[in-house]
Simulated assay, not measured.
Amino acid sequence: MARLLKIMARLRRPGDGCPWDLEQTIESIKPNLIEEAYEALDAMESGNRADLAEELGDLLLQIIFQAQIAAEEGTFNFADVAQGISDKLVRRHPHIFGDVKVRDSKDVLRNWDAIKKTEKKVRKSALDGVPKHVPPLHRAYQLQRRAARVNFDWPDIADVFKKLDEEVRELKAAVQRKQRQGIIEELGDLLFSVVNVARFMKVDPAYALERTNAKFVRRFEVVEKEITASGRKLKDCTLAEMDAIWNRVRAADKRA
């Protein structure tokens, strides 16, 4: 870690540092942090631990980079970051570093949330603290979880499905009226309701959607491969021809 910090400081050294690194600001490298986080997630999904180690290193670099820029500004440095998270972990694990007794992981989470509330500034809303700069699907999930904590929630899954059906009807009505703004609004409401179903079923909606994305890519590539092998191009095929291959692959998936 000490070597990595020295390398980053050298890259940012005025006068003879790396021109590109010296041009960067906390704002300019913000997209890199997000990109590296997603690449680390891809590596986790692949199961390749060597790739994961590399991507976690790239993600760590972004943290080091941000801390170096902040140190130059005089606001904080990497030691402050490490000290802060170390103190937080000790503080939020009183059953390990103190004399608090817990029965199970549920007690641990309850204590964590209670301690967290004492650390944060007074919030005006139960929804305060949900990050704005996260993928909308994840933000919807977190907003619903926060609302549920104060009992703003459906009694059971049956009511959630009723709401889902209602949103489908409203979207269809907006489509029939050909009202673009209405379609956008109703489509958003429908997606929000789908996320609610996922939350009730304790399923991460982003994870479920990504699995479907991967499934679509795999099946579509089979369609492409078979049509290309026949000496044709997709644009020259009918939907019925492509659907026939798709349905065969889908049926094979169901049997597997």
Rank of each mutant, 00 (worst) to 15 (best):
F216Y: 14
D236I: 05
V223H: 00
Q176D: 15
K6Y: 09
A252L: 13
A158Y: 12
T118L: 11
R145Q: 13
L239R: 15
G231R: 03
S86N: 13
Q24R: 11
M242L: 07
V160M: 00
A173H: 08
A82K: 10
V249S: 03
E166R: 10
H95A: 07
C18F: 10
G84Q: 02
F78K: 01
T25A: 04
A252S: 07
Q24K: 12
D80T: 02
F65K: 08
A240R: 06
F192W: 10
A37R: 07
E221M: 08
L191E: 04
L164H: 06
V203H: 03
D165L: 12
I96F: 09
A70D: 02
R123Q: 15
S46A: 05
F192N: 15
R177P: 01
Q181V: 12
A67Q: 00
E23V: 06
L187C: 12
D159Q: 15
Y207E: 15
R110Q: 14
I96Y: 04
E23T: 11
Y207D: 14
A256M: 13
R145C: 09
A158W: 11
H138R: 15
F192E: 13
W246N: 04
F216G: 04
R180S: 14
K162R: 15
K202N: 14
R250G: 10
R177H: 07
G98D: 09
E35G: 00
Q68V: 04
M242A: 00
E36M: 01
I115T: 00
R10G: 10
Q176F: 12
L209R: 05
P19Y: 02
R219E: 06
A158T: 14
L143C: 05
D107Y: 07
E170M: 05
L11Q: 07
R218C: 05
D165G: 11
N196E: 14
A240P: 00
A71D: 04
A206H: 06
K254Y: 09
L164V: 03
E186L: 01
T75H: 06
A79W: 11
E170T: 03
T25K: 04
R92L: 11
R13T: 15
T238Y: 00
L59G: 00
A43D: 00
D99Q: 09
V100T: 12
L127M: 09
Y207K: 15
T75W: 10
K225M: 09
A208K: 04
L60P: 01
Q66T: 13
K30D: 11
L109G: 02
K254E: 15
I26S: 11
K120W: 12
R180D: 11
L191F: 11
L33W: 02
E72V: 04
T25I: 01
S86C: 13
D113K: 14
K225P: 00
E27N: 08
F161M: 05
S125C: 05
R103W: 09
